[in-house]
Structures are given as structure tokens and as C-alpha cells.
Amino acid sequence: METTIQKKYTYKDFGNDQEVRWCPGCDDYVILRSVQKALPEMGVKKEDVVFISGIGCSSRFPYYMGTYGMHGIHGRAPAIASGVKLANPDLSVWVITGDGDSMAIGGNHFIHVLRRNIDLNIILFNNEIYGLTKGQFSPTSLVGQKTKSSPFGNTQPPFSPGELAIGAQARFFARIGGNAPKEMSDIFVEAEKFKGTSLIEVLQNCVIFNDGCYVKYTDKTVREDKQLFVEHGKPMIFGKDKNKGLVLKGLKLETVTIGENGITEDDILVHDAKEKDPTMHQMLVRLEYPLVTGIIRSFEDVTLEERENALTEQIKAKSDFKVTNDLFFSGETYQVK
């Protein structure tokens, strides 16, 4: 029997009256709307939702939400959000970050929050460029990429966020194009359901400083042929004609065509997002063709706050110290008359 009536929200409940100030045509608008549309589907109360961001274009996000929020300092959002969640595990805590914010200045917090597995949802807006400082290369920019700070081409090899994250023990990693609002919303809902740190990398186009950086994967005309959208338990098939798929050959993934060389659908690998061993997930993350999107890894594990709470309860039950007076007067004290 339901004892409480869950308020029904619409996406409007999660916005506010602030004018959104991203550049016209920026994918950030798509992400904002997708989040606002996903939130009513999650069964969380508006007052329990908190958005924490760092610095950068993406990090203005909390100001456009109707929830609790904090626009923090550069790179530190995962640490701030960890404090929020540990202080009150009942909250739904979201981190908004970009490729500069999380991979460069905040790299340390990024890997450690994943390692600890605190129940946070991190949306990483990856546009492979610094936008707010007007166009320098970022840790995800490609070698050779010409930017304001690499006029002759970038010489620093990039991170792949998924590879770094899974290496740092991420239990949930999803990747999605910035022009796929429906799939994005669905992933956000799954991320909220997932207990533990969820990382969602959004391939976000920067219309001003890095326009078209993902167009070869995300353009509507090529999307189906270049992207493999994975779903747990389903064969990894893609292509306009749904006839391409992945098989394992030796230690490498290979794309094959169903119907050619005796390949049938049964030969195609079935996606297992819940597998503990991240080897296959790493291989999927690294593929350049097809580019793998969707929830690549979703392995449920004990969260930090569960461990902490269990310990606290155990110690509280055993301890003779109920109030500080018990501690202060314990052990070796003496009287002065």
C-alpha cells in the first residue's frame, strides 16, 4: 500500500526563470532539456535533487535548474558532491563537468570519486576544447588539432574519458551523442537508478570553437552506420540495415556483416554491461569504428556510503559512548579539590 502520494512533475518543474546564456545552437541546451525531461521519470522529489558543477561553459548548468545547486570551483565538483552525498545519502546528487574541468584541473578528484563509488551521477560534457576561455586545446583534443593555444596543431595525445574512468574502477559508464535527447534522457534515468557513481560522457558539439568535431559519428545521415548503440543483453548490431555486428577475433573486436562469409546473428557478441571484469567494456570504449554509445558498463557494487553507514551502525550499537560527556569523563581522569 502506498502511504505517500508521489507528486507528479513535468520538465518545467525542474527549470527556473533564469535566461539560459549558452551560445545559440550549443548542445548544452539539448543536455539541459534532456535532464529536465528525465527527472520527472526518476521518482525523486524535487527538493532532494542537487546539482554541483565546476567551472566552464557546462558548469553554468545548475543556475538553469529549479533544484538545489552549487556552481563550485574549477575541477572540484566531484569532491564537493561527495561531501553533499556523505552528509545526506538520501539526496540525488548530480555532478556537471566538462573535459577541461574533469580531465585536466580536476583529474585527481575525477579518478578518486570513481574509485570510491559514491552514489553520484556525473555528466561529462566532452567538446574536446576549452570554450569559456575561448578555444584552447583540452585533454581530450586530438593530436594535430589547431586551437588558440596550438596554432600549429596540438602535440599532446588525448585521454579517452571512458578508458580513464574504467581504469579508475568506474562501475557505470555511458556515452551518448549530444544530438540524441531521447537516448540521453533514458540513460540519465538509468544512471539515477544505478547505485554507485555513474559517469555519462556526452559528445557535445561546441558551435563556436570546435564545430563539427563529432559530425562523422553523430550526423543524422551517418549515425546509424557509424555508431553502435549498445543495450544490455542484446546482440551488438548496428548499421542502417541492422546487418553489421561485433565479433571477437583473437584479442580484438572486429566488425562483420551478417549474411556474409557465413556470419549469422548468433555469431554476434551479446552486450553484458553488468559483467564485473571490465576487459570487454574497455575494448568497446576504445573502438573508433563503430563508435560505441549507450550504457557500456553497469556493474553494481557496494557504495562508499553503504560501507560507511554499516560501520557507523555497528560501532554505535557496540559503543558505550552515547554523548560526549561519556567520552570526556572516560579513562584516566583525576580530581582536584
Binding site: V50, I52, Y68, M70, G72, I73, R76, A79, I80, A81, S82, G83, V84, K85, L86, A87, N88, L91, H109
Partner: peptide, 10 residues
């Protein structure tokens, strides 16, 4: 930073 988050959360 975690302390700031905890303070925000009360």
C-alpha cells in the same frame, strides 16, 4: 571541498 559540500547539505 567535501567539507563545503557537507556544509551545504547541513
Amino acid at each position: 571541498s567535501s567539507a563545503i559540500g557537507a556544509s551545504f547539505a547541513g
